[in-house]
Computed example of a mutant assay.
Amino acid sequence: MHKHYNGLKTAALFGALWAVLLGLGGLIGLNTRSSAPIWIMALIGVATTAYGYWNSDKIAIRSMQAYPVTEAQAPQLYQIVRELSVRANQPMPRIYLSPTMNPNAFATGRNPRNAAVCCTEGILQLLDARELRGVLGHELMHVYNRDILTSSVAAAVAGVITSVGQMLLFFGGGDRRNSNPLAMLAMALLAPFAASLIQLAITRTREYDADEDGSQLTGDPLALASA
């Protein structure tokens, strides 16, 4: 099953991401008198991740300038989302529309009880009901699979690595008598690049899971392919 292997790949990629962070911290510890900056950045990363994860639905909805709609205003959208929620045995999410013609749809929220579904006015005009159902099945599975937490943690760790790499690049290693300038420079340049690649790979594995699970939820994989 694709889901099984994607789960293993996600775990392995997270391990690689943390290995880069720990390697960066170890190098700083060996070449400087203090590794305090990396711990400070890690704490900042944890704090921002917690805020973003807890408020993921509000942040995403606000960024799209979306507004809530009633079932009378969007009957087809409500029907599709209600059907998929019942099939998944999950609570009915809140429904929003975004006043833009750019075709887009997403589901967000830290868990199914705090989920929200948002569609743009453009995608409602572009897709038929079957295609929209396929897209929303995929998006809802991101919430049901807790991908918001996965992506938030990956982004936070990658962000900490990038920030520490930039600190090394601009401020050097601190105690220059004991530091290895070439090693510090290489780590400052390569660690953020590696972290970005790993973060993208984690995101891609979760997309594969959402494709498979969403197709199972709708029972119509060709609808998502058509959309």
Rank of each mutant, 00 (worst) to 15 (best):
residue 219 G to S: 02
residue 65 Q to H: 12
residue 208 Y to Q: 07
residue 66 A to S: 08
residue 103 P to Q: 15
residue 68 P to T: 10
residue 175 D to N: 14
residue 91 P to D: 09
residue 29 G to K: 01
residue 211 D to V: 01
residue 150 T to M: 09
residue 102 N to V: 01
residue 219 G to L: 00
residue 42 A to N: 08
residue 201 A to V: 09
residue 67 Y to E: 15
residue 85 S to I: 01
residue 164 V to T: 15
residue 201 A to T: 10
residue 6 N to T: 10
residue 190 L to R: 03
residue 197 L to W: 09
residue 60 A to S: 06
residue 159 G to Y: 09
residue 178 N to P: 00
residue 150 T to Y: 03
residue 155 A to L: 07
residue 199 Q to F: 02
residue 72 A to W: 05
residue 148 I to D: 07
residue 30 L to W: 07
residue 120 T to H: 06
residue 190 L to N: 05
residue 9 K to Y: 14
residue 178 N to Q: 07
residue 119 C to R: 12
residue 50 A to T: 10
residue 87 R to I: 01
residue 192 P to M: 00
residue 58 K to F: 10
residue 178 N to K: 14
residue 62 R to L: 04
residue 109 G to E: 10
residue 164 V to W: 10
residue 220 D to K: 00
residue 46 V to C: 10
residue 52 G to Q: 07
residue 87 R to C: 02
residue 169 L to E: 14
residue 133 R to L: 00
residue 39 W to T: 12
residue 218 T to H: 09
residue 5 Y to Q: 01
residue 142 H to T: 13
residue 217 L to F: 05
residue 141 M to V: 00
residue 4 H to T: 06
residue 201 A to W: 13
residue 204 R to V: 12
residue 46 V to W: 11
residue 99 P to R: 06
residue 138 H to F: 07
residue 98 S to T: 13
residue 220 D to Y: 02
residue 97 L to W: 04
residue 140 L to T: 03
residue 165 G to Y: 07
residue 140 L to A: 03
residue 208 Y to S: 06
residue 23 G to W: 10
residue 225 A to N: 10
residue 79 Q to Y: 02
residue 76 Q to W: 00
residue 95 I to V: 01
residue 105 A to H: 02
residue 216 Q to S: 05
residue 175 D to P: 01
residue 45 G to E: 04
residue 63 S to L: 14
residue 170 F to R: 13
residue 209 D to K: 13
residue 212 E to F: 07
residue 110 R to K: 05
residue 161 I to E: 15
residue 179 S to C: 09
residue 31 N to H: 11
residue 90 Q to G: 02
residue 31 N to I: 08
residue 150 T to N: 09
residue 193 F to V: 15
residue 200 L to S: 14
residue 37 P to G: 08
residue 162 T to V: 03
residue 21 L to W: 13
residue 149 L to M: 06
residue 56 S to Q: 04
residue 142 H to K: 04
